[in-house]
Structures are given as structure tokens and as C-alpha cells.
Write a protein that binds this DNA or RNA. Structure first.
Lengths: 174, 174
DNA sequence: TCCTAAAGCTTTAAATGTCAAGTAATTGGC
DNA sequence: GCCAATTACTTGACATTTAAAGCTTTAGGA
């Protein structure tokens, strides 16, 4: 099976995170556990393939993807916001990519405190190869869904994202 | 924003992981990034609330939830499969819960290699309190979705999960 | 009985992640 | 100009997770 040191046999195939919920739980809770389980399942597959086929990791791929979409470079802080991780984390990931010559830190001419991160030519080439493959993995994983279902799922998730974000400001904590 | 040391202002509210995709990317890829971003958003909120209100973590909560649904106890390996994490991980989580008296390791009478994990009375009480609150958080987060939408989303995710699982055996890696 | 293989759990190393503190540069009010 | 407050990044401490190696126990065959 996936990767645990203790492999699950076929009989366990349906016992996963969703088992945290029981039939008496609220529909929203069951849905959340299914969402979590599904996302984790796919994320694991992607991480493993990045590791196996490109000897890299998802956070490294993410940072390269952000830089690929920003040809003029991104400040560390911008990258950190877009990746939704802390600044200290980006420092480490950037260090490792820079060591391998995939990205470069360039002094921001307008702000002496800031660094701009930019893909090197080698990084760009490598990213394109990975992104191609990555897209194919995703298409395969979603293969059983038709265009209609993909559109519906995207729309529902957009609504959910809005619903979840709506609480961010007020923080109703009870 | 959640917790990064560099806070995102309101103007950045829409720049998140989804920005990894561009308009030319395949619909499945865009959907995947939205799925990932939405799940991460919700997961962060839940983690933070567990931390703030109960001084615990999601993996600890998960393990307690699994044990709550298995009154006779679970072997470490079973817990690890259900939580979809590695065995070594469960060892650490179980250690921390055991130190606090929330769970206990019991020698499996049938297999000298195995331990059975079981909630203590204190653990059971504490889990029930957390689970109540947890369910309310989730209901709030999903509040803007109607029953119909929740059912649709659940059905689509079930199809997606099946689609993603389908590849597990064969591992079409190219 | 004995020996090999496998299973269950723990331990360890490397990567990722947060947070807090520290350094350097910029901004804004006076 | 000057100085305080803010901002950008780095660093270090600590937590979590995986994969792999290690230890103990079980199972099965010679």
C-alpha cells in the first residue's frame, strides 16, 4: 500500500480517516472527513511521485511553481503568503533550491531589506518537465470524473471556500 | 491570515495556493489546487482551535477519535492504517497521550508483539467534550452550504476518492 | 526442535513546519 | 535630519512526519 511501515491488506482498503465519523454524526462532519481523506490520499500520491521521479518534494515544487508564474521574481514574503506558510519556512526551502542552482536570490533594487527569488534557466527547464508530468498525474487521478462533474465540484468548493473564509474575520469561537 | 510571521493584508486575501495554476491549465489541475487550498484552509482553522481551546493537536484528536469508536481498543498498526499515517508516527502520538493519562497501552493477550491502545475514562470524557465542540466548528464552517449542496459535494468526493484509489494497485507511473 | 521469514512496535535521521528573537533597512512624524 | 516603529528576512529551538533500520515475538517448514 501507500507507505506506512505496516502495510494495509486489501481487507483494510476501506478503513481510513473517514472511520473517525459514525452514522450518527452530522452530515457536515462526515463531509469534512471525506474531504480531508480524499485530499490526503491525492496529496500523498503526488508527494510520492515527486520523490520517486524527480527526487524533490511538494514544498519545493510549490515554490518553483510560484516563481514560474512570476517571471520577474517574487519577494520572500510574497512567496510565503501565496504558499500560505511562514516566512522562516520559505527561507529554508529557498536555501535548498538555491544550493542546487534552481533558483537565485537577487537583491531588490527598491528595497534593501528584500530579496527577489527567481528561477534560473536550469530551474525553469526542470520545473517545466515536472509540471508536465504533474499535470498528467492529476488528470489520471481525476480520470473517472467527467467535465460536468469537475465543473460541479469546482463550483461547490468555491462556495465552501467562501463559507470557510467568511468566518476568518469575526472568529466566532464558541 | 492564519499564523505566518508575515501577515497577509486584505489585498492578498485572494492570493493563495490556487495561484499556482494559470488560466491555461487543465480543469482537473485547477480543481485539484482548489481542493487543496480549501482543505488546507479548513484544516488550519481546526488545528488552531484545537490548540487554543483544548491545548491539543489534530493528530492527537484523530487518534482519540479512532479509539473512541473502538471501545475494545485498537492495535497500533490498525490505528496507523486508519489514520493513514506511518507506524512510527502513531508511536509518538500514543506516547504523548499516554503520558497525559488519556490512553493506555495494554498488552495484547494473543500476540506478544502487539499493544492495544484504549482510551482511559479521563480520555473518554475529554474526547467527548472536544468532539462536541469540533462538530460545531465544522457545522459553522460549512454553514453557507445547504443540505442539497452538502449531499452533492459528498457524492462527488466519493467518486473522486474511488477514482484516485483506482490507480493504487497498478501504479501507472507515466 | 530449530531456523528463517514475517509482523508489530520503537528508534533514528532528514525534511518541513511554526514561533520567537535577532539583524538590517525603510518609513513616517517631528 | 533624526528617531521610533515597522517591515523583510534569517536564525535557532522545538514539534511533527516519513522512511528505514533495529529489536522482539510469532509462524511455519525442514
Amino acid at each position: 500500500m501507500a507507505r506506512g511501515s505496516t502495510a494495509a491488506g486489501p481487507a483494510d482498503a476501506l478503513l481510513d480517516l473517514e472511520t473517525r465519523a459514525g452514522p450518527t454524526d452530522h452530515a457536515a462532519l462526515r463531509l469534512w472527513l471525506r474531504l480531508l481523506a480524499t485530499t490526503n490520499l491525492i496529496e500523498r500520491r503526488v508527494r510520492r511521485k515527486l520523490e520517486d521521479q524527480f527526487d524533490t518534494t511538494l514544498p519545493r515544487f510549490d515554490l518553483m511553481a510560484q516563481l514560474h508564474r512570476a517571471p520577474d521574481g517574487l519577494k520572500m514574503g510574497e512567496a510565503s503568503r501565496r504558499m500560505m506558510v511562514s516566512g522562516g519556512n520559505v527561507t529554508g526551502i529557498a536555501d535548498s533550491l538555491e544550493r542546487e542552482g534552481l533558483i537565485r536570490r537577487i537583491a531588490d533594487p527598491r528595497d534593501g531589506r528584500a530579496s527577489l527569488l527567481r528561477l534560473t534557466d536550469s530551474g525553469r527547464r526542470q520545473f517545466r518537465a515536472m509540471a508536465d508530468r504533474h499535470e498528467r498525474w492529476i488528470i489520471e487521478i481525476f480520470a473517472e470524473l467527467g467535465d460536468r462533474e469537475i465543473a460541479e465540484l469546482a463550483a461547490l468548493l468555491a462556495r465552501l471556500k467562501t463559507s470557510a473564509r467568511g468566518l476568518d474575520e469575526q472568529e466566532i469561537d464558541r
